[in-house]
Design a protein around this nucleic acid. Structure first.
Lengths: 211, 211
DNA sequence: GCCTGTGAATCCATTCACAGCT
DNA sequence: AGCTGTGAATGGATTCACAGGC
């Protein structure tokens, strides 16, 4: 172990990736997995798997492999997904609604506790038994009252910067941004961008190379 | 220029990123942009911008900067988004429907020309004036008849591998996978994965570090 | 014999710093 | 004077290869 060393960003991305097949193996009743098998399931190099895990501890047994259940629980401790995180969503168009209804979030401990939209038609709508759409003017109040930690932006791009500013103003700790523009953020707020079209552009580029 | 050199993967990701603010600058009527300004808008290093672009040609003018309109059109040629790509979507739950309706795709030249779902309730539904839901058994036929190039998977994870196999069987050239499992793919089919929860895990990890 | 954990070696990407053009 | 284009230098990440323990 070498917990002192700075942990590569790429390692953190992959750690979360490893947990997906581990869940499957656990469901299938498979008890032990080797770095080679896990690497194959995640399409990475076996040495990569071992090195990534070694940043956080010695979770394996030499000659045997990793205990699936134990490894999964260690990973959940590392990426702090052994507890619930509170999310707020802003922008309840097609994508926003789909995100709120998507059960993958809750399954991994991400719970939407507030929802905002500027459209008068949407405000007041009950989109889940415990989730009523509120106007953006309530963002500051609601975020601090409920202790929301992560804000999800799924507004049209023209509004996303203004929304980000409101979230930051309300002292939100992190933002997941689905709009195709980079959000400016000063200070301690973390931002992750998810832009589908960047992924498609990537595919298009490589297809174009093949001819 | 050094078109012979292998182009870093990271460069290709960023090239597509650069086009977003360029579109905005063009709309605002701004004619010229420096690497410094563009870098600021994309949150990268100015030298990075220059180097990335230099892999593909000499688009700038020393002492002046880059002509916005020209640079944008060059970038569109590089990532082959100066033409239309044909997409098929499989899985029309909340997320799938949101993707089909999301106008960002069409705006950038990605057009859904076919839609599949296994639910009898969905089959036959007209989700757009030119798009009727078909059963997965039609995948092979439709893909080859329409010449679909990219498949989008938004099924539940339990079905995603089977769907991927069908798409690959139908000789699709690339897959954009929204389900949280890595799709196995042999042969020449390209795959890109989009897993929202990996992004959230990343935020959670860093928030956990801060205490 | 088998599989982990890890220093050392390699590979790739970013940034610097300045020559070259307008 | 100003800003691009790019070799050279630095910094990170991946992979190798083998020692260490079951």
């Amino acid at each position: 172990m070498k917990r002192e060393t700075r942990i590569p960003n790429a390692t953190i991305e992959r750690i979360s990736l490893y947990s997906r097949p581990l869940e499957e193996l656990l469901n299938k009743g498979i008890r032990v997995v080797s770095s080679e098998k896990l690497a194959e399931l995640c399409k990475v190099n076996p040495a990569q798997v071992r090195k990534d895990l070694s940043y956080f501890g010695e979770f394996g047994v030499r000659g045997i492999g990793y205990a699936v259940k134990n490894l999964l629980s260690e990973i959940r401790k590392i990426i702090v997904s052994d507890r619930e995180w509170k999310l707020a969503i802003v922008g309840l168009g097609n994508l926003g609604m789909a995100l709120v209804r998507h059960d993958n979030f809750l399954k991994r401990g991400y719970r939407f506790v507030a929802a905002f939209d500027s459209s008068p038609r949407k405000i007041g709508e009950m989109i889940r038994s415990d989730l009523v759409v509120q106007p953006p003017s309530k963002i500051h109040l609601v975020i601090s009252e409920l202790g929301v930690e992560i804000g999800v932006i799924s507004t049209p791009p023209s509004q996303s910067q203004a929304v980000a500013d409101m979230l930051i103003e309300a002292r939100i700790r992190a933002i997941l941004n689905f709009s195709p523009i980079q959000v400016r953020h000063s200070g301690p707020c973390l931002v992750q961008n998810v832009d589908f079209t960047v992924r498609l552009d990537n595919l298009a580029y490589h297809l174009g190379q093949e001819g």
